[in-house]
Design a protein around this nucleic acid. Structure first.
Lengths: 242, 242
DNA sequence: CCTACTTTTGACCATTTGGTCAATTATGCG
DNA sequence: CGCATAATTGACCAAATGGTCAAAAGTAGG
């Protein structure tokens, strides 16, 4: 029968973990027996558990980084025994990767509104607002992502080059076209994105610092709106779009 | 004799590490017998070793986070045996704290140029340029700092409130005064700082992402200048100072 | 040279932690 | 029902790691 999931039978005695991780890398995420095997589609319970584990992992990884997080803590947060996590994801690294990949998908979506036919001001404002919204709505995801980049993107490097870069080339071209058409100030389009990412995600990543400076325990709805308004108007004015 | 440095004699058998750490927290940094004891001033060699250790620690902590870094790795990077680090700094956490405190001092300096009597455009430009310079010159320091914030500032929280916040209150007041005098656009002064910090430090913290998108291995002099010019002009224009 | 000290080190722990396994319990299906 | 497969879990490891110790090696001043 096609390989079911249960832990890959070890072959060498040493470096069992390494092997499990390599296997996990091959699978897209963690689906042990996809629909392509002709078997029944993944059970509902499985999906629910995987989601619960990823969510718990996101929170724990965000709070302590990859090295500081422990599988035991994630298991506890997910309300499952530890071996269960390994049953579903194979290894800590594979679980970490799953968390990151989910985030990447969400992260790229807002850029959909940046197309040549759109109105620059409207498109950029919408993009920034959506980024701010994500930053406030999914701070843990943002932090895990930031943490990965901070440490040199050991697991994401190829993804950045193969997925993020091509997408950004297209978006940058759109901005450049707008500039060429005289519809906005001549900013450096690549760096404009870096600035937008930084300015928006700082509210998720460095929330403690912001709260410490503002003297509040957390950013309430009103403070979020204020921050959003600030970023939108500063950047738009910076792009000559006010 | 006044307490020399050698490891605090353990009292309880359990939780020795905890105790060492607590002791380390009391000392300002790691000087075992300050000039205040009337003894000779710290030997030159000691200072050199401490500096070497902090520098090595900064690099290692930046690369792996607090949890992922190991004392053995730091020791190797510093070219000293591991017990030596404990001799000088007491514990991993104390060493981490020393790294962060050094960074904070450097980080606050550039704000000196933001004073009411200065010319807004000139002062802000200088501040941003200095921040960019630091970002490129000391990426490891920036990353350790970012990492600490990312994880909720477990060791820095009080420092943020007691040191950063008071300073920022003064700087924010300066900006507000400039705005009231009609010398710049009415931006939100606190958030302006958050945006500047984010936009500048992103070049240190998320360098991999930036390089991946730009398709270069690292940011050369020319690319750094380009980035700096972008940030300066975007922000200044955003503040109505172009 | 001697004494008192600061530093340096190799060898050692206790604990933590990622990961494993064997046995047990669901669950779907013919 | 009864079989096969999927999922669960308590009990375990081996390795890694922060930290410790005691003995040795400087080093400064008398």
């Amino acid at each position: 029968m096609a390989a079911a999931r249960p832990q890959p039978r070890r072959v060498a005695v040493r470096s069992r973990a390494k092997r499990a991780d390599a296997v996990a890398t091959l699978r897209e995420t963690a689906r042990p027996r996809g629909a392509e095997e002709g078997g029944a589609q993944p059970r509902r319970k499985r999906l629910a558990h995987e989601a619960a584990i990823i969510q718990a992992a996101e929170r724990v990884f965000a709070g302590a980084g990859f090295g500081g997080a422990t599988m035991a803590e994630i298991a506890k947060a997910a309300g499952l025994p530890k071996p269960n996590l390994h049953y579903y994801f194979g290894s800590k690294k594979a679980l970490y990767r799953a968390v990151l990949e989910r985030t990447l998908r969400e992260w790229l979506e807002p850029a959909d509104c940046i197309v040549a036919t759109a109105e620059p001001r409207e498109a950029l404002e919408r993009y920034i607002r959506e980024k701010m919204r994500l930053s406030f709505a999914r701070p843990y995801a943002s932090r895990v992502w930031a943490n990965e980049l901070l440490h040199g993107a050991p697991v994401l490097r190829t993804t950045l080059v193969r997925t993020l870069r091509p997408l950004m080339r297209r978006k940058v071209a759109v901005i450049d076209q707008w500039i060429a058409e005289g519809r906005m100030a001549p900013v450096d389009s690549s760096h404009l994105f870096f600035t937008i990412w930084a300015a928006t995600q700082t509210y998720a990543d460095f929330e403690v610092q912001i709260c410490a400076v503002l003297g509040c325990a957390s950013l309430e709805r009103a403070a979020q709106a204020r921050a959003t308004q600030h970023v939108v108007s500063l950047i738009l004015r910076g792009c000559g779009l006010s």
